[in-house]
């Protein structure tokens, strides 16, 4: 069937100019890198490949993306270490290829997807807000596809109520899984209610800023649920399982009074140790005085699309 196809601009046309500039800047300041402490400035891994995607103008209107350098060099990925700079510095030995994602559980048609097949799908670029439970935030141009696409292909059974996600366990390639002090139980596990997982905002990301996902951001495939705290976005996913009971989630297992199953961004429900009313935007240039806090929005600004999922629920109890 022959239908109109959207024009598909190349990645170089989509990637914001600031990203290219920041990457050029990195090359130019290679010498400066020798005197700047490691971690503050480090080039992205060389294996990143350009990734074509259709920009989805429906999302991200009016948002300014966080610089590429900060998105890829300041994040939590405890499998590689506890510091924000660890993922970028210590993920070089991780091999995101070859890779498969198993989707099974309460489905009629369980399948194993190869990452190359997933990368060959029609991909969308979406500019999403990302709010960390630690009260900092970013705006990230993800490339991916709705999780609902995969879920529909495996045909969930009527009994399926939840979706459980499992991250990879590779202590030999992930130094954070090999530490002395207890961190989290591996694998990192997460979960969504089926209706949350099927929501059009929920995507599996395979890239950002016009290229495949860097190792430190959850290569080769990760979950992005923009109205929830960042820790719900399980990285380097190897298994997606549909279940009839609520699946355990890593942070909830570690500290149930601090991290709930839902973890919807909510300025009115504070973390026991800090307020969630405001957030520090990352990478707002200008040093100390450039990064003023800003108010955190209910459902991270996606309330119009997702608030109905939680109608009648007590979000203070089901945090």
């Amino acid at each position: 069937m022959s239908i109109f196809r959207y024009p598909r601009p190349s990645a170089s046309e989509i990637t914001p100019r600031s990203a290219w500039l920041s990457r050029r800047g990195l090359l130019a300041t290679g010498l400066a890198g020798a005197i700047v402490p490691p971690g503050l400035m480090r080039p992205a891994p060389a294996r990143a490949a350009a990734l074509a995607a259709r920009p989805d103008a429906q999302f991200g209107g009016g948002l300014t993306p966080t610089p590429f350098q900060d998105v890829t060099h300041y994040n939590n990925f405890y499998e590689f270490g506890l510091e924000k700079t660890d993922p970028a510095e210590r993920s070089g030995g991780f091999h995101p290829h070859p890779w498969t994602v198993r989707v099974d559980g309460l489905v009629a048609n369980p399948r194993t997807y190869d990452i190359d097949a997933l990368l060959a799908r029609p991909l969308q670029e979406r500019l999403y807000r990302m709010r960390c439970v630690e009260a900092w935030s970013m705006v990230i141009p993800w490339i991916g596809f709705p999780l609902a696409e995969l879920l529909k292909e495996v045909e969930p059974l009527g009994s399926a109520k939840y979706v459980a996600f499992e991250s990879v366990v590779r202590p030999s390639e992930m130094p954070g899984q090999d530490g002395v002090l207890p961190v989290l139980d591996w694998p990192y596990v997460e979960g969504l209610r089926l209706d949350e997982a099927l929501h059009p905002l929920t995507i599996l990301a395979v890239g950002l800023y016009g290229q495949t996902l860097p190792n430190q951001n959850g290569a080769p495939i990760r979950l992005v649920v923009p109205w929830k705290y960042g820790f719900k976005g399980v990285k380097s996913v190897v298994r997606i399982r549909l279940t009839d009971t609520r699946p355990p989630t890593s942070w909830n297992l570690r500290a149930p009074d601090e991290y709930g199953f839902y973890a919807n961004v909510n300025p009115e429900v504070d973390h026991p140790r800090w307020s969630q009313a405001t957030e520090r935007p990352i990478g707002a240039r200008g040093g100390f005085f450039g990064a003023a806090r800003k108010p955190t929005l209910p459902f991270n600004g996606y309330g119009e699309q997702v608030a109905s999922l939680y109608a009648g629920m007590n979000l203070r109890r089901d945090f």
Partner: peptide, 12 residues
């Protein structure tokens, strides 16, 4: 910090 050399979350 003034020289913007404390990384992306300088206040923290």
């Amino acid at each position: 910090g003034l020289a913007n050399r404390l990384g992306p979350d300088p206040v923290n």
